[in-house]
Design a protein around this nucleic acid. Structure first.
Lengths: 111, 111
DNA sequence: GTTACCAGTATACTGGAGTATACCAGTTAA
DNA sequence: TTAACTGGTATACTCCAGTATACTGGTAAC
């Protein structure tokens, strides 16, 4: 029981570390929604800057969450594809969306 | 579909905003695990400082996530009780624990 | 009488996440 | 030919989340 709690906390903190900053989860979500091109992803997340998206995608590529594919059509075409592993995070995202929706309802009620 | 995606993103970002920093989720988790006293919660989350826990609990009290109860026994006894609303976050936490566990397995395999 | 618990507060500091803005080289459409 | 798209990079700045450390006033055990 002591043991369990410590192990659960570690797992929890690993996930939180993975989530990291402000943009990782929205980016994963955008990819899972089928957005593939850089500007397309950028547009799907109002507020994100080019710089942050670029950083995020690079980092995710390094961590095998996304595959960057370059097609040498002219003009150059770049596509980002979420890996199957990336998609395993989808369940948590769905829970987050649901909770956020209920939360908003609750906050609006209060007013 | 456009519409949906924007609404989902908002809900998602609300949840992420709620999660906020490094310690909110571990604190909720600790409370949901039955920890009630200040030092008890503190001990259950290695690495957290008194200051951060204090801030977190104050903030959570303001947002009705926790009830601070003072018993005027001598010495003064203080207990923090998670509200039912706080507990609704438990499902996400459980998903996070599960995902973190699998993630760790995967990372260890790689080495 | 000193050590250790409780429930915190006070002060000072810093790294880096996130922002803002401008820019590049190439392509297409009006 | 000028504007607007693509997929980004470069530079500079700011702010605050989180850290570190010390302290308080009361109780209790040794």
């Amino acid at each position: 029981m002591e043991r369990d709690q410590a192990e659960e906390l570690r797992a929890l903190q690993d996930t939180l570390y993975f989530i990291g900053g402000k943009w990782r989860v929205p980016v994963i979500n955008s990819l899972c929604n089928g957005n593939r091109r850089f500007r397309e992803i950028e547009r799907s997340i109002p507020g994100i800057t080019t710089r942050m998206l670029s950083k995020e995608l690079k980092d995710m590529e390094m961590n095998k969450l996304v595959t960057r594919m370059v097609y040498n059509d002219t003009p150059v075409l770049v596509e980002y594809e979420p890996t199957p592993y990336c998609r395993t995070f989808g369940k948590i995202i769905q829970e987050m969306i649901n909770w956020g929706r209920d939360h908003r309802k609750k906050v609006i009620q209060k007013k």
